[in-house]
Design a protein around this nucleic acid. Structure first.
Lengths: 208, 208
DNA sequence: GTCTATAAATAGATAGAC
DNA sequence: GTCTATCTATTTATAGAC
């Protein structure tokens, strides 16, 4: 099932090909969307014929699923310390943003698929909505932990959800701006804004 | 050039058809992207043949340009009072968000094209980047006005740009969340966050 | 495991009848 | 102003040789 460093035998080249195809699919789907990107282009850029690609993946949708799996696994490697809690976990997102800078293709894929999957019957819709739900729940949990640990002032459950949604929105929106204008200071802008937000959380109660 | 209410003569039905096609193109391009959406689908949903559509628009890209023009004109009608300045102009964006709720197709088109135009050679790239630049400049100008009028504490030019970028990112990101989950309180979440941001601007100097 | 060849569907675009 | 008919190119997907 998983790729082993020293894998031998007839499977080795096959596994490597699959990985090549999936990596190229990330770029192509990221650049042109899932509907807009073609298997032909992926195959050509990898250096094989569309027929060879079809032997590895039964259908275009099958390839998309593999891309999503690969993406999740890579993300798990970027997302740091799952044991972090409270403000420590929130602030770790600065590093996540910095990591995203290193793989533009992933970022394009994420935003392209998110927007594309807005449509009712998109094959990635369930995946995207589930991922959003998980991300939102994670942010909300970390904020709640910060409240429980006395790191910030008390917040209602509704406030916590709104703050979590807003932080995610900020990250997505800034990343979109960076894709359109790679010259902007993505990491710095987010870090400053996150610091200001946490500052605000400190004395939110003092203002009523 | 422009549509007149009581237009008579041989042009009337033609003008009406063009408008129908452009409106449907907004839905289709919004749902499937520009590359993903087909002229066939647009024509079929309007109730004409692709050939008839080709008589109105020389090419697919020509239709896209008309869609963008139509979009800009409609936005000009939503965006209120161009004379508003400072915090008044910033807060008017609450109404803009509420207006966006009424036309999901426009919102999908905006986000879909923005992400899609991230690619180097997309026909809408220039339009999208120009629109972003203009929006950013407008937000920055209004914040600078608020500073000049003494509505908020002083901010450096760099701070103003970062705050403007962050507000735009917040709006885009929240709108994306709403597209994925229409049950969320888009207007309320944004209004609360904007109020908190303005509150923060009031005493940003007091904290260093 | 990859190839050539090809099927079947769909894309954007054009020609000419009415 | 819209139609039918058609062209060329491209799409996903399959069959069978090597």
């Amino acid at each position: 099932m998983t790729t082993r460093e020293g894998a031998r035998g007839p499977y080795r080249t096959g596994i490597e090909r699959r990985r090549q195809i999936v990596e190229k699919a990330i770029d192509v789907f990221g650049a042109y969307g899932y509907t807009g990107g073609s298997l032909r282009q992926i195959a050509t850029e990898v250096g094989v014929t569309p027929a060879a690609l079809a032997k590895h993946f039964a259908s275009k949708e099958d390839l998309l699923i593999e891309v999503l799996r690969y993406w999740e696994e890579s993300n798990r490697r970027v997302e740091p310390d799952p044991d972090a809690r409270g403000l420590t976990a929130i602030e770790a997102n600065k590093a996540v943003m910095a990591a995203h800078l290193q793989r533009r293709g992933f970022l394009e894929l994420f935003l392209t698929l998110s927007v594309e999957a807005t449509g009712r019957s998109h094959p990635a819709r369930e995946f995207v909505t589930a991922r959003y739900t998980n991300t939102l729940a994670g942010f909300a949990r970390h904020i709640a932990e910060a409240v429980a640990d006395g790191e910030i002032a008390p917040l209602s459950a509704e406030q916590i959800e709104a703050e979590a949604r807003s932080l995610i929105a900020l990250m997505d929106g800034l990343e979109l701006q960076w894709l359109l204008d790679p010259g902007m200071d993505l990491v710095g802008t987010f870090a400053t804004q996150l610091d200001a937000t946490i500052e605000r959380w400190h004395d939110i109660a003092a203002r009523g």
